[in-house]
């Protein structure tokens, strides 16, 4: 999922204080799962903003709503009947949702309430860790299902650097050396021979190195 965290309240207040009526918009997808921008977080932020603004002597009408997905135009279209009178939208979606809104509502200011972080997986309740950088040319089949691009600070493709000590990365003792993880996993799978195969230099064009990426499925695209 795409993970995110709420921006500091002070920053959000700066965004919304020039307006009299805003729409605070959540998203039911990734940001709900990582407890950053779902219906509950919309309620919490609306109350928090309302109280903080009240303290500073201003009063803003905050309309709350949560879409099934903010990154799909058909769901964004649901907002049309309710957007009348809204002066700005504060979106609790990831950056994709914010931009989808900005594209659709050209005359309305749209602000992000979240800082979008990374594509991650849940390690345990309340903990999310980066697992994928969307390089566009997946190597997990070679590396025992553990990604050296998302999980190695240097994105090394052929084994660890000299900073790997007792299975930990030199950047922090809390960070596993991913190449140690890969080696351990290949060993348990009996695939040690994979480790000695030299991976060629990675072509980063598929990872965004040649500009914004797009997928076009000819059979689906209209």
């Amino acid at each position: 999922m795409i993970t995110a965290e709420r921006k500091p309240l002070d920053e959000l207040i700066e965004y919304v204080k020039p307006f009299k009526r805003i729409l605070l918009l959540g998203c039911n997808e990734c940001v709900t799962v990582c407890a950053a921008g779902g219906r509950k977080e919309v309620g919490l932020l609306a109350s928090g903003l309302q109280m903080a603004l009240l303290k500073s002597g201003s009063n803003i009408e905050i309309q709350q709503h949560t879409l099934e997905r903010q990154c799909d135009p058909e769901y964004v279209e649901e907002l049309v009947p309710m957007i009348d009178g809204t002066e700005a939208i504060l979106s609790m979606a990831c950056g994709c949702g914010v931009q989808q809104l900005a594209m659709r509502f050209k005359n309305l200011p749209v602000f992000p309430a979240l800082n979008t972080k990374f594509m991650g997986a849940s390690e345990r309740q309340g903990v999310w860790a980066e697992r994928c950088q969307g390089c566009g040319d997946c190597v997990l089949g070679i590396t025992g299902g553990i990604c050296p691009i998302a999980r190695c600070a240097k994105q090394l493709m052929n084994g660890p650097c000299g900073g790997s000590t007792t299975g930990k990365c030199e950047i922090s003792e809390d960070v596993d050396c991913v190449w140690q993880l890969i080696w351990d996993r290949l060993k348990s799978l009996g695939q040690e021979d994979r480790y000695v195969d030299i991976m060629p230099a990675k072509d980063w064009r598929s990872g965004g190195g040649s500009g914004p990426r797009k997928i076009i499925r000819e059979d689906l695209a209209e």
Binding site: P8, L44, M51, K55
Partner: peptide
């Protein structure tokens, strides 16, 4: 912590 952020 959130209350402190709000100013309570």
């Amino acid at each position: 912590n959130y209350l402190e952020e709000i100013g309570i």
